[in-house]
Amino acid sequence: MEPLLEVKNVKKWFRSGRDTVHAVNGISLTIHPGEVVALVGESGCGKSTTSRTILRLTDPTEGQILYKGIDISRMPEKQFRAYRSKIQMVFQDPTMSLNPLFTVKRTLSEPLRLQGIKGKDEIESRIIQMLKKVQLGPEHLDRYPRQLSGGQRQRVGIARALITDPDLVILDEPTSALDMSVKLSVINLLRKLQHELNASYLLITHDMNTVKHLCSRVMVMYLGRIVEAGPVSEVFANPKHPYTRALLSAIPVADPTTKKERIRLIGDTPSPVSLPKGCSLADRCPMAEPRCKERQPELQHLPGERMVACHLVEEMVSS
């Protein structure tokens, strides 16, 4: 099957005064039609920047982004506009991502108008249809964001992203601003809509529970690079990279009787201004060896469609 989206060796560096911030340092990923993939990592790991380059909210410094085989990374904005409706985004904070002065109806009619749909009745009927899909009703049409609850706002955000029938939806932390029960029903809704519309999702998050319930494949990012990738069930059950292990073991378990061993990282994420020469985790890794500081490990293929970038794993495989 032809991939829907291919990101090839994308780098994104920002200038910040005299410094260069290396936000994304050569990441490659592929998303197939109908696939739900997660990109996880902690703040500053470059996951949001990656999604912003795919959406052309910012231009990559290097690398290619192919949508159905066509490079969209350097396409002029006017030409790219034709692809906009096909690649959509659901934002993290529904309070910030909805224009406070627009009613639900106005928010949802804008993407349709931009697609060239003119008829008032057609627009209205499509909006009502979409609202129904996200479990809202016609009574919400004339409400302003402040008149909606957090969960309802996020539903409007989801409706806005899906109303143009996109092939790829980027979900940027779609549940992290929501309370627990609301979070659950939003995950549930996203899963249901994915089955119905058969769009691909790229979920950007640090919440492993959302990943578990929504995605089939996961990629773990650290300091602008992918350090581990593979099917969710396998990566979660048997993480290879020390960072993935630390990340998974840090999630609190809601069971007071299990006292599990935590893999501790030392200190903080290094600054993306001056990247370490070797492995980016070397300074924090409890298992680091001298060579980890010398040479940067490549992303290696492992059996079962898994990939890991760690010197220690390289040996595990070769031996």
Binding site: L57, S85, M89, Q92, M96, S97, L98, P100, E110
Partner: peptide
């Protein structure tokens, strides 16, 4: 974010 959202729509 709502400005980004509008840009994503092609505004």
């Amino acid at each position: 974010e709502f400005a980004d959202a509008a840009r994503c729509m092609g505004t």
